[in-house]
């Protein structure tokens, strides 16, 4: 089995890559309240978000993304964002709280997951 592990893993990675490339898109809307507050560095999965004051709209592959903030002591998970095809998931972040907190328009069973 072991000699087969590498080709199988490589094939799985390729398939995953192909899925992501041809995959569907949804959107994440990040709102900052209050607008003037200084936002810590935000990350949606591995990507750093160039969050603007107010509202930032990002296209994102369908699935669940981790929204994290770097508050100086490393990255902290704020919430999971569930992205659905051709739908927009809105997350409001209050940077005045330490760590910042996500407010979801709609949550799933897990209160830390915002869904669109």
């Amino acid at each position: 089995m072991r000699p087969m592990a590498r080709p199988i893993a490589a094939a799985a990675l390729l398939a995953l890559g192909a899925c992501e490339m041809g995959g569907s898109t949804g959107y994440v809307e990040l709102k900052t309240v209050p607008v003037a507050a200084r936002m810590p560095a935000l990350f949606l999965d591995a990507d750093k978000v160039d969050a603007k004051a107010g509202v930032t709209v990002l296209r994102q592959p369908v699935g669940t993304a981790r929204l994290q903030a770097d508050i100086g002591e490393g990255k902290v998970l704020l919430c999971h964002v569930v992205v659905k095809k051709n739908r927009i998931t809105t997350v409001t972040i209050s940077p005045l709280e330490r760590p910042p907190r996500c407010q979801c328009e709609r949550t799933g069973n897990d209160s830390k997951a915002c869904i669109g």
Binding site: T25, Y27, D47, D50, T56, L58, R59, I88
Partner: peptide
């Protein structure tokens, strides 16, 4: 929206 997204 895809065309005008902030990370587009």
């Amino acid at each position: 929206l895809n065309a005008v997204a902030d990370n587009g």
